[in-house]
Every structure is written in structure tokens, then in C-alpha cells.
């Protein structure tokens, strides 16, 4: 049985994450089966696209409960980009059909997701620096302020400082990595961030191995 499940969120970068995980000697399976997900020893939750679309897809595929169950069991869990944003309580990114309501997330990390203020180019695309706010095995062997690849128009604001793991400057300092126990989220794309990104994925693999 594989130790790592990549959630099939039907997003465009699913294969890139699969390839990068394989590159660092992880043996992931891609799945959208709620039973496999809820009992998975570890999870990577990728996502690109719109918050509302992704949230409704999760509920349509009956994955919301499975993801929450996996999180509640305290298994290593890494949300990437929109996959990180979906861990939060809600987002300003509305669906076309429910224009004035904020979209609901998994609420595993209290806080909300907001659009970058006008002024700087949006989306925030390219390589930017990530400063871990404390030493953590996820960033082991990665320089403070190492560059990672970002592409997003919304950013997460955790309610509690304890959930802050990494910060990035884009006009102001925003949360680029979050933590809650064994649950991690990164706004950037480790699978597209060269050696630094592969190292982070390999570190996540070590976190998984240490807990098996």
C-alpha cells in the first residue's frame, strides 16, 4: 500500500506533483476515492483554479468529509496553492452563482482567503522568497529566504499566529506557508520550484516516514 495519496482534484498540475513526488523517491497514488483518502497514511492536496469551483467539486465527489477525517486523524497532510487555501474557513473568491457570499473552505485552519489589493500586478506570478518564521523539518536544508515559484491572485490570512509557518513579501508580508500540527499548507508550487521545491517535498517524505 502506498504511503502517500495525491488527491485527484482534477486540477491541471496534478501530474506535475506526481512527477515531482516520484523524483524525490516517494511512491504516490492519485485518488479521488473517499475510503482511500480517509484512511491514507499521508496526503498531498493540490489545487489550481478557482476556490468556489474546487470547493464544489470536493463536495460533489464526497471528498470534503474524507479530507476532514484524514486531517482529524493527524496524518501528514500537505496542501499546495489552492489546496492550501481550501484548508481555511472561507474565501473572498466567490462563485458566479453565489456572487455575494464568501465561499466556504474546510475550516481546518481558522482564517480567510483574500484577493491581493489592486496596485501590484495580479496574479502574483514568479519566484519569490519564503522566510520560515521558525525552524521546521519541512524547510530543513533550505536557505531562509530561498525562492519558490508562485502563481495566485488570493492569499490566506490565518486568524492565529500559531498557524504561521512562512512569510513572503509582495507589497506587504503575506502568509506563504501554514501549519497546524501535522497539517501543512504552502501557497507556492514546490513541484515547480527547482531544487528548493524538491527538497521541501523530500522533507515532507521524511516527515511521513518518521511517523509510519
Amino acid at each position: 500500500m502506498s504511503s502517500l495519496v495525491i488527491i485527484d482534484s482534477e486540477c491541471a498540475n496534478l501530474n506535475s506533483i506526481y512527477k515531482a513526488a516520484r523524483k524525490v523517491a516517494l511512491e504516490p497514488v492519485i485518488s479521488d476515492n473517499p475510503h482511500i483518502i480517509s484512511s491514507a497514511p499521508a496526503i498531498i492536496f493540490p489545487g489550481v483554479g478557482s476556490f468556489a469551483h474546487a470547493a464544489s467539486l470536493l463536495s460533489k465527489k464526497k471528498l470534503t468529509e474524507a479530507l476532514l477525517e484524514a486531517i482529524a486523524r493527524g496524518k501528514p497532510f500537505l496542501g499546495i496553492c489552492l489546496g492550501m487555501q481550501l484548508l481555511f474557513s472561507k474565501s473572498e473568491e466567490t462563485s458566479l452563482s453565489r456572487l455575494n457570499e464568501p465561499s466556504e473552505g474546510l475550516n481546518a485552519v481558522p482564517g480567510e482567503v483574500r484577493r491581493f489589493p489592486a496596485g501590484l500586478p495580479i496574479p502574483h506570478v514568479g519566484w519569490n522568497r519564503v522566510d520560515p518564521v521558525f525552524e521546521h523539518p519541512l524547510f530543513a536544508g533550505i536557505n531562509d529566504g530561498a525562492y519558490f515559484y508562485f502563481t495566485h491572485s488570493y492569499y490566506a490570512r490565518p486568524e492565529h499566529k500559531d498557524n504561521l509557518l512562512g512569510l513572503t513579501e509582495y507589497g506587504f508580508s503575506f502568509t506563504s506557508a501554514v501549519i497546524s500540527g501535522n497539517l501543512y499548507g504552502v501557497q507556492f508550487h514546490p513541484e515547480k520550484s527547482g531544487p528548493a521545491g524538491l527538497r521541501l517535498l523530500s522533507n515532507f517524505g521524511k516527515i511521513i516516514a518518521d511517523q509510519l
Binding site: N15, S16, K19, A20, K23, Y149, T151, H189, E191, K192, S193, G194, G197, L198
Partner: peptide, 8 residues
């Protein structure tokens, strides 16, 4: 290429 190169 995507098997070998991990940048966009």
C-alpha cells in the same frame, strides 16, 4: 521535459 525539469 516535465519528467526531468521541475520549473514552470
Amino acid at each position: 521535459t516535465a519528467d526531468a525539469v521541475f520549473i514552470p
